[in-house]
Amino acid sequence: MISKYKIDEQRPGEKVVSHLRRHWFIFIRIFIAYAILFLLPLPIYYCLVTLLPELLAQQMIVAVLAVLLFSYYLSMLVFGLTVWTDNYLDGWTITTHRIINREQISLFNRTIAELELRQIQDITVEQKGLIATLLDFGHVYIQTAGKMERFVFEQVPRPHQVARIIEQIKDNEEKENSNAGAI
């Protein structure tokens, strides 16, 4: 597991400023979707009991239905965990020197990219929709001069504050570099 206070190949004097992950609402949304899917067999069962009661009197049919029901629940559970893994393992770390972008695309498909703060050219914040505005989460786009043109912090909480923090750290680093150059 990754520690919140240490990162791989930490440079001398480098400090972790913030670890960002998607807003909690994104996880709640996934949970609600799967809770609805978990309850879905109940109305189907109700329909079978009321419309086709003779069907449930046959042991063979009940056995097949039980297999289908438990297969459905096991599939839902493991799909739910996969969606959780996919979203939870997307993370962004801001340090005093760089930004680390960890993205879980699917199982066994993961990318890690780094961006030096001095490479940043522009930061844009995007908040779309009523819920994102009310709960204060959104995307932070970081335009760079490097190969990877744009870094995206997806659905992170307090995106305006995140943009301000990055700009502040970048300014501090530039000041330190110019002071070191003057000496």
Binding site: M1, I2, K4, Y88, L89, R102, Q104, L107, R110
Partner: peptide
């Protein structure tokens, strides 16, 4: 994945 890449 959760044990290797997840946060503690």
């Amino acid at each position: 994945h959760l044990l290797r890449f997840g946060f503690y």
